[in-house]
Design a protein around this nucleic acid. Structure first.
Lengths: 228, 228
DNA sequence: ATCTAAATTTCGGAA
DNA sequence: TTCCGAAGTTTAGAT
């Protein structure tokens, strides 16, 4: 629906949208989205499900102000309330969409980890996989491997290699190097992109940096890409 | 526009939406939103501005598959690409909305700070406000007050009290207690909701926890809300 | 422009 | 179910 409207929200905060022409989207679960003709994907205002929408007639004061209809959307659990005052309806249509199969995504850290585990020699010739998500007292190391000489190698994987990731790997290495079964453990910081600051910090701590080419790794994995 | 479509995205990740009926919203800045009939306000897939949309004719293979139209949205800077394959158009309409005055909001941390400053006795009987946003070398303390005995009290305010907030307040307290004009400074961690871990850490460090009832504070402040 | 922190965050996975 | 952390995060404010 396209309508001239003003919107008031009272819930976790109070907010008001002055009179303007906007797009109103009512989903089948009762949720409501108020969009302007620009900006990002985030609506100007909204109500998340579960919620209920009730359409009401304006009182005499509201009618005099030019309001033809009022929509009230309430969130049962939280008590949040959204009130849309409609002044003029420019377009109104309803459609049955049916359920959506949902988004399939990949390319995240999990997939990167799976690919690197399969192509463990990217760490260097003769490397072998010990296991993914190797558990330590302070959390799981993304990948534990052994180099050609049999020495332990701990790998921290990130999509974007930042300082935080280096710190994380440093903590793991410190801990693992106290374990006589594992020590000495060297570290590899692997990411699709490594920030200069992160690289400097890592190399300063003797951690090797490895930039991963995701497309190439995926191409090696299976050549039948879904896209294009 | 309502259409049967499938969507492919290649950018920071790869994603695919199988064939289904969905709502497609094209904004005046060229951005595109793909919504299903449910879920939250977040689209299934989208392209943020600045980006450009080009409508293309399907090739023979695509035509055989039932595709009548293809939309390609590209983000100039990042190279992200979104391809919408349209199989059937169920509804199509365009509207001029004009610019939006934008959202007016209040009730966030700033409002909470204002309310607590006005109702400073919530910290305890006899407390007085020194000032809001008291500046220190490492940043502003949300509220500085004095208790009934005249001792300094530093308050860190959060909507949701988390570990981070306790760490923040701890840093402030450490610094302020080195200042002979202020010391001794006690700490109060005030929030609408305090996570158990944060509470434990705070109390372990001698920081008092204070849960704030925003609605009650607002009710005390003024009974004439803008809404309803 | 760059960075930091909050968000009516939303969303997914693990404990 | 709850908690924790990432997100194609987005957004607003400050430096």
């Amino acid at each position: 629906m396209i309508a001239k409207c003003s919107v008031d929200y009272a819930g976790r905060l109070s907010a008001h949208l002055p009179l303007a022409t906007r797009l109103l989207m009512v989903k089948s679960d009762g949720s409501l989205l108020v969009h302007s003709d620009g900006g990002s994907y985030k609506p100007l205002n909204w109500m998340s499900p579960p919620c209920t929408l009730t359409v009401g007639e304006p009182d005499s004061v509201q009618t005099d102000a030019g309001i033809t209809e009022t929509w009230t959307v309430t969130h049962a659990k939280t008590g949040d309330k959204l009130v849309v005052s409609i002044y003029e309806t420019l377009h109104d249509s309803a459609h049955e969409l049916g359920s959506d199969p949902g988004l399939q995504k990949d390319g995240v850290e999990a997939h990167l980890q799976k690919l690197l585990a399969e192509q463990i020699d990217l760490l260097g010739d003769g490397h072998t996989l010990v296991r993914r998500e190797y558990m330590t007292a302070i959390g799981p190391v993304d990948i534990l491997a052994r180099d050609a000489q049999g020495a332990s190698v701990a790998v921290e994987l990130k999509r974007r290699g930042d300082i935080d990731g280096v710190e994380q790997l440093t903590r793991y290495l410190e801990l693992m190097n106290r374990d006589p079964h594992l020590a000495p453990v060297s570290g590899v910081f692997a990411a699709q992109e490594i920030k200069p600051q992160a690289r400097t910090l890592a190399e300063d701590r003797g951690i090797r940096c490895l930039v991963l080419d995701y497309d190439a790794m995926r191409g090696l994995d299976n050549a039948d890409g879904r896209l294009f």
